[in-house]
Simulated assay, not measured.
Amino acid sequence: MTASPIDLVIVDGVAVSKAALRSYEKDRARIKLGNPTEVRNTKLSGQFGGIYVRSLQNNFDLDAGDTTTPDDGVNCIIDLDGNRFKKVPIDTSTTQRLVVASGAVTVSADDADIVVIDKTVAAATTVNLPPAADRTKAVKIVDGKGDANTNNITIVPQSGEKVFGTVDYTPIIDGNGGQITLTPRADGTGWF
């Protein structure tokens, strides 16, 4: 069994080279930037781990071999060093719903596959599930704002329904960037 790559960079009891850590991050970690303007004003040479542009809600990968595609701010963004970052296509076989409005969220029986909680004004959120018997597919609830540690997301099933085998269990997303996928039980009595 091979160790995690980060364990080869950060070794217990051994001083860590800043250059080694920077190299690891650039090679493997996707960094988050606010918008295309921030990308254009940042030197990102060697950022092989890619970037995430929050305003576009999409990942972009470095295309080191491209020197000609123009920057359109949507599909290709050029950084301060002249590197081109290309939009990673989103899997269109799953549907998403972005929640930015305040208040509780109600998931309907025919709602999107993924419900992303990314409220404009940060706040704790309650997500009300539909009756399990009415939903035919799983639903993934995601902390899209990355603040669930402070603003918990509480998932509330219908009264009397089981979640992970326990009646009226209320899952809570309380870690930044956390998510949970709930699949309706075949007998319609709840979720797992």
Rank of each mutant, 00 (worst) to 15 (best):
A109R: 08
E161L: 03
V156K: 12
V74I: 15
T136M: 10
K87C: 11
V115M: 06
L56R: 03
S45M: 13
T166K: 04
A109I: 04
T150P: 02
Q96S: 15
T94W: 11
C76H: 14
T106K: 13
A148M: 03
T94R: 12
Q96H: 12
N128T: 02
A138P: 08
A124R: 01
T95E: 03
I173E: 02
T95A: 04
R135P: 02
V116P: 02
V127K: 03
T125P: 03
I77R: 00
A122F: 07
G65R: 14
V105C: 08
L98T: 08
A112E: 02
F164Q: 07
V39N: 05
A122H: 11
G82K: 04
S159P: 04
T37W: 06
T94V: 15
N151C: 00
T136W: 14
A138I: 03
V53T: 08
N152K: 13
A101C: 04
L129I: 01
R135V: 08
A132S: 05
V100W: 06
Q158L: 09
R54S: 13
G73L: 06
S45R: 12
G165P: 00
V107F: 01
A109H: 02
P171N: 05
T67M: 10
V116L: 10
V121P: 00
D118K: 09
I114L: 09
N128K: 12
